[in-house]
Amino acid sequence: MLSGLKRQNIEITGKTRLLGILAHPTEHVKAPPEINRIARLRGADAVMVPLNVAPADLEALVGGLRGVKSFDGAIVTVPHKQAIIRLCDEVSPRARAVGAANVLRRDTDGRIIGDQLDGIGFVEGLRHAGVELEGKSAYLVGAGGAANAIAFALVEAGVRCLTLANRTQAKIGALREKLIVAHGSIDVRLGSANPVGHDLVVNGTTLGMNGSDPLPLDTAMLSPGMVVAEVIMEPEITPLLEAARGIGCRIHLGRHMLEHQLQLMANFLGL
């Protein structure tokens, strides 16, 4: 979306506002250049930088950022989306329901406010690509922060039924209960690694980021006509997408979720 925009030099001054992306590791993150382009386009004197913080150090970092008066906020990604919730002073109802936040803002009084835009960005990316969700059946593998957010967003987008799959059944059982509490009588099922019978198949895990990762689902059960979607952005074509493309499925890249979150994130961060 924004990758074709002309690059502009970023000059750091004593007035520059600081934004971060909290991740571990940070080599795979894609947001900083895009947010920095948005800042330039909007005339904002702000810059986003990667902050590589291990889980054991996250609480200390957030505590320190409260006192950095030039810090306005951050995007939060793997593996911190769920842990960050308890470190925020306030979170949106959406983030509270999902149990994960992927963006935070520091108010002038030092309070940290969290929100969750993963699911909205994912659904908007599908819609922009012409993938209709209302009345369709969806299969989602994963139970982490991104998968939780996508599950809520798919239900809100009107899917007819949603099948949840994960190696740890207790986690998807808990996610199913959260969805029922939030949305009442909806068709949410617990599934296996077999995605047969679904219109949309989504990998909401990190499996595929590393070459040695196992596949997140049984690709032999995919069939032409399915839409197979990723949340992983690096590599762009994961082993799952490669297998799906070979079978004749329509594939949907992980970067589309980020592309459709960027403007929302920029707004939340005050750019």
Rank of each mutant, 00 (worst) to 15 (best):
E236F: 09
I112A: 02
S185G: 08
K171R: 10
M48E: 03
P93C: 11
E230M: 07
L117Y: 00
L61K: 15
D45C: 11
H183S: 15
V131Y: 11
A143F: 00
G64C: 08
G4S: 09
I172D: 02
L162K: 01
K81R: 11
I120L: 04
R40F: 02
A31L: 06
N203Q: 10
V53Q: 04
A193Q: 13
L22F: 11
H260C: 15
G204Y: 00
P50Q: 08
G14F: 14
P50R: 14
L240C: 13
V202K: 09
L18H: 09
T163M: 01
L104V: 13
R105W: 00
E124C: 15
I251Y: 08
R94L: 15
G119M: 01
G142C: 04
A23Y: 06
S223Y: 11
G208N: 06
I21G: 05
A149N: 00
V228P: 02
A31E: 03
E242F: 13
Q263I: 07
A157E: 01
E132S: 12
I75K: 09
K30I: 15
T16D: 04
D57G: 13
M226S: 03
Y139A: 02
L262A: 13
A97S: 09
L179R: 02
R86V: 07
I21P: 05
L19C: 05
A101Y: 06
A157Y: 00
R250P: 08
G248A: 03
P93S: 14
A74S: 14
V53C: 07
A229W: 01
R37Y: 07
A56V: 12
T168M: 05
N36C: 03
L164E: 01
L207A: 09
L2G: 01
I247Q: 09
H24Q: 11
A46E: 06
I35P: 01
L262P: 09
R106G: 00
